[in-house]
């Protein structure tokens, strides 16, 4: 029992796989200052900051902060048809409702449910009460324009909104993966709920192997489409977008979630100050060596964007 454990431990160490303790202790704590957390934990503030830095984001249609407003949604909802309701400080996709169309007096969700006005009012009211925020703190609800997924990506993800998660370390993108929702994940791009993680070659933007439930798969389980070798459109633009987020929020170790909108190109959906480690499984490689490489550069945050992107491309071979 003892030896295989040690062998596995050393093998992971050798291959530079990052564990949660190392992520928290070596990267998040030294490089992510507490005072910047509220910027990314509150999606409304985050969106404003990113917009101020000229970073493309999905439009904010409305935000609700008081129970009074939550009780008088009717007028506000009247002009909205396709939108997403999000808790401003939710995590892991909890509490997000995607409305794809409006019928006479109810709304249709991406999951196929029909919601009446009081359903939506209850949901918003739950959000305000802190149902989805960490520690149950009072929260705000955010109405966001629905992203029209780039039709090229539709082939890979028949349902839901796929997104691309880029880990940006000190302004340098170090690893990326695409997250494809499945029927099982309920249209959510959340690996833990059954979405597919697809590794991406940082230099070329082509997809590598796909992983679902920790296992390598060849084809999308819903559409049977092959996933590997797909070229992500506007990859360079996407990389630049992700690299610029560091300066906007001041976090050294950052997860940037980007969606590809059919009309507007790559948009930053949200930022994450504690991005997960599943990205290593999707890429079948460890983050440790790449992070160490960036750490060896002399204050990489100060380098200009093209240098940083060059470094990122070099990391692909690591």
């Amino acid at each position: 029992m003892k030896l295989p454990v040690i062998g596995r431990y050393l093998a992971l160490k050798r291959r530079g796989v990052l564990g949660l303790n190392a992520r928290n202790g070596r990267y998040i704590m030294p490089y992510n200052q507490r005072r910047f957390y509220p910027l990314v934990d509150d999606k409304i503030r985050c969106k404003q900051v990113l917009e101020n830095h000229g970073i493309a984001v999905p439009p904010m249609l409305d935000s609700i902060r008081t129970q009074f407003d939550a009780g008088h949604l009717e007028k506000r909802l009247a002009r909205l048809e396709r939108f997403v309701i999000k808790p401003a400080s939710g995590s892991g996709g909890d509490g997000i409702v995607v409305i794809t169309s409006k019928r006479r007096d109810y709304w249709l969700t991406a999951g196929g449910n029909l919601l009446r006005l009081d359903d939506i009012q209850f949901h918003v009211s739950s959000i305000l009460n802190g149902m989805y925020s960490l520690g149950g703190h009072p929260d705000a609800a955010l109405f966001e324009g629905l992203v029209e997924t780039d039709p090229i990506l539709r082939r890979l993800a028949p349902e839901g909104v796929p997104d691309i998660r880029v880990i940006v370390f000190r302004g340098v993108p170090v690893m990326a993966m695409m997250r494809l929702p499945t029927r099982r994940s309920g249209g959510r791009a959340n690996i833990h709920q059954g979405a597919i993680g697809v590794g991406i070659n940082l230099a070329t933007g082509t997809t590598l192997q796909a992983v679902m439930d920790q296992r390598v798969i060849d084809r999308h389980p819903d559409s049977d489409e092959p996933i590997e070798g797909f070229e992500v459109p506007d990859w360079d633009g996407l990389m630049e977008l992700s690299a610029r987020c560091q300066a906007a929020v001041g976090l050294g170790y950052l997860g940037v979630d980007i969606v590809l909108d059919a009309n507007r190109g790559p948009l930053v959906l949200e930022l994450n100050a504690r991005p997960g480690l599943a990205i290593q499984i999707a890429n079948q490689t460890g983050l440790g060596n790449r992070l160490a490489m960036v750490e060896r550069k002399h204050s990489p945050e100060q380098a200009d964007i093209s240098t940083r992107l060059d470094w990122a491309r070099e990391l692909a071979d690591l």
Binding site: L12, K13, V17, L20
Partner: peptide, 21 residues
């Protein structure tokens, strides 16, 4: 323990694919 930055036992299972390749 607060400064332990090694793997957790559960991560040895979670990342098993990465160790074997």
């Amino acid at each position: 323990m607060g400064r332990y930055s090694g793997y957790r036992l559960s991560e040895l299972i979670r990342f098993r694919e990465l160790a074997g390749r």
